[in-house]
Computed example of a mutant assay.
Amino acid sequence: MTPRKNQWWYLAEYIGTNGFTTGPVPYNSGAHQFDISIKVLKHQLEISTSQGDFEHFSLQDQLSVADFYKKLMGLLKKLNRIKN
């Protein structure tokens, strides 16, 4: 959601009690937020929004990087967090 910077320094993943999270990511001119979490014990990726929307998919299957990307982008499009 932000412009790229050298060496991807702007990307931060935070360690939580259940796995890793992006922390809040603003969208819609900062009016709303979403976060992406990888729940290690549940073996799933979860996306939740400040509007109460929630989506997830299992990480139990062996996904290629391309398949992981397609699933993630598909969920973000479904939640209207990225443009088509």
Rank of each mutant, 00 (worst) to 15 (best):
T2M: 12
G52S: 05
L63S: 07
H32L: 09
I36W: 06
K78S: 08
Q62E: 14
I38K: 02
Y10H: 15
E46C: 02
T17V: 08
A12T: 15
V40N: 02
T17L: 14
H56M: 15
A12L: 14
T17D: 13
K5I: 10
S64L: 05
E55H: 06
E55M: 10
L11I: 14
S58V: 03
L76P: 00
L41Y: 05
W8Q: 10
T22F: 06
D67H: 07
L76E: 01
H32Q: 12
Q51L: 15
K39M: 04
F34I: 03
A66S: 10
T17M: 09
T2E: 15
F20R: 02
D67I: 12
G16R: 02
A12I: 11
Q33S: 08
M73D: 11
Q7R: 08
R4S: 10
I82H: 02
R81A: 06
Q60D: 05
M73P: 06
I36V: 12
K42N: 00
L72Q: 08
T22R: 04
N84T: 09
P26E: 04
T2F: 13
F68T: 05
L75H: 13
L41M: 03
Y10D: 11
Q60H: 11
Y14F: 13
Y14L: 15
M1L: 14
S48A: 13
K77N: 02
P3C: 05
N28C: 12
I36E: 00
Q62L: 15
V65W: 14
T22Q: 06
L45C: 01
A12D: 14
A31P: 04
K42I: 01
L63I: 01
T2A: 15
T2S: 15
L45G: 01
L63G: 02
S29Q: 14
L59M: 13
N80T: 06
V65M: 07
H43Q: 13
L45P: 00
S64H: 05
T49Y: 11
K71W: 03
Y14P: 10
F20S: 03
P24T: 12
R4W: 08
T22A: 00
S64W: 09
F68N: 06
Q62C: 13
K77C: 05
K83S: 13
Q7T: 10
T17G: 09
D61N: 15
V25F: 01
E46T: 00
L59G: 03
M1I: 13
E13T: 09
T17A: 11
K83H: 09
L75V: 14
P26C: 01
A31S: 15
I36T: 07
P3V: 08
L79D: 00
G30F: 11
E46H: 01
N84R: 15
D67F: 03
L59S: 04
E46P: 07
G16L: 03
V40K: 04
P26K: 09
V40P: 03
N80Y: 03
W8D: 12
G16V: 08
F34N: 04
F34W: 06
L41Q: 09
G16W: 02
Y69K: 12
D67R: 11
N28M: 04
L76W: 05
N80S: 06
I47N: 02
S37Y: 07
I82L: 07
Y14G: 01
V40S: 03
F34K: 05
F68V: 02
F57P: 04
Y69I: 10
N84S: 09
F54E: 10
W8P: 00
L76G: 07
D53H: 14
K78D: 06
L72P: 07
Y14R: 12
